[in-house]
C-alpha cells in the first residue's frame, strides 16, 4: 500500500530524513521506534505532506500513486489520515461542526461512545482538552475521515493506562477492518513507551535514528532489545 523509497527530507535547509526506505503492505500495522529527534514524526509529516517539510530526493507512493507533488488535502483525500501528537486548538470550531464539514455527522455520534467521548461533540476542537482527551479525539477524528493509511504520532503519550487500552484497541480495530469501500487499511504508529504495543498487535517495527531507518523486525523482540541495549541494531549489540 505504502512504498517509501530512498526518502530525503529537509526543514529550513537541515536534513531530517536521509534515505529512508519502508514498505507497508495492506492490512499491516507497523511501529516506528527511535529516540527524540530521530525523524519519526518528520517521516509521518512527510508522508502526509505537512509544512514545512521539503522532500529533496526519493519517492512516496500510495497504491502506486506518487504523492510527493500532491498538496496536503489531496493526499488526505487519497486516503491518508493522521492522529496528531499535539494538534492546535480551534476556538469556535466545535467537534460537531468539523464532523459536519467532513460529512461525517452520523459517524461521530456512533464512534464517540466507543471512545468515551459522547459529551465531546459540542466542545471546540482541542480547546481545553486534557492530554488523554486529545489522543482519544485524534483517534475519533480518523473514524470520521475513514482513511486507508493511518498515521499515529505517539497515540499513548499523556494517556492513563485505562485509556491506553481503549486507544490501542481502537487503533487495532480501525487498521484491521476495511474502509467504507471495503478496501484493506494499514497503519504506522510512533511509540515511545511501547505501552501501546500490547494492544495494537503490530506486524513489524522499524528503528529510526539520526534520520535513517536502521533496522526492521518483530515489534516485541525489538522493543525488548531497545529496553536493554538502546536504539541500536540488534545484530550489532
Amino acid at each position: 500500500m505504502l512504498e517509501i523509497e530512498d526518502l530525503c527530507v529537509e526543514v529550513a535547509g537541515k536534513s531530517v530524513l536521509d534515505g529512508v526506505t519502508l514498505h507497508l503492505p495492506p492490512g499491516e500495522l507497523h511501529v516506528l521506534l527511535g529516540p527524540n529527534g530521530s525523524g519519526k514524526s518528520s517521516l509521518l509529516a512527510s508522508i502526509l505532506g505537512l509544512p514545512p517539510y521539503r522532500i529533496t530526493r526519493g519517492a512516496i507512493r500510495l497504491d502506486g500513486v506518487p504523492l510527493t507533488d500532491l498538496p496536503l488535502h489531496e493526499r488526505a483525500r487519497l486516503g491518508i489520515g493522521m492522529a496528531f501528537q499535539r494538534p492546535p486548538g480551534l476556538d469556535g470550531v466545535s467537534v460537531s461542526a468539523f464532523a459536519e464539514a467532513l460529512g461525517a455527522g452520523e459517524t461521530l455520534a456512533r464512534e464517540a461512545a466507543a471512545l468515551d467521548l459522547t459529551d465531546f461533540v459540542r466542545r471546540d476542537m482541542n480547546v481545553g482538552f486534557s492530554g488523554g482527551e486529545i489522543k482519544r479525539w485524534e483517534i475519533l477524528k480518523l473514524f470520521l475521515q475513514d482513511p486507508r493509511l493511518m498515521l499515529f504520532d505517539e497515540p499513548e503519550s499523556g494517556v492513563d493506562l485505562e485509556h491506553v487500552i481503549a486507544i490501542g484497541q481502537a487503533i487495532r480495530r480501525m487498521v484491521r477492518s476495511p474502509d467504507r469501500q471495503d478496501r484493506p487499511r494499514a497503519g504506522l504508529v510512533i511509540t515511545h513507551t511501547g505501552l501501546i504495543l500490547r494492544h495494537v498487535a503490530a506486524d513489524c517495527a522499524h528503528i529510526v535514528r539520526d534520520g535513517r531507518l536502521i533496522h526492521s523486525g518483530d515489534p516485541q523482540t525489538l522493543f525488548t532489545h531497545i529496553q536493554t541495549h538502546g536504539y541500536s541494531v540488534p545484530d550489532a549489540a
Binding site: 496536503l72 488535502h73 467532513l102
Partner: peptide
C-alpha cells in the same frame, strides 16, 4: 494544515476557521 490533513480544501478550512473565530 490540521484541517486540510482531514481532506478539506484550503478554502473550506479557511471558512471553518473564520466561522469559528
Amino acid at each position: 494544515a490540521y484541517l486540510m490533513a482531514s481532506g478539506m480544501s484550503e478554502d473550506a478550512a479557511r471558512d471553518l476557521i473564520v466561522q469559528g473565530f
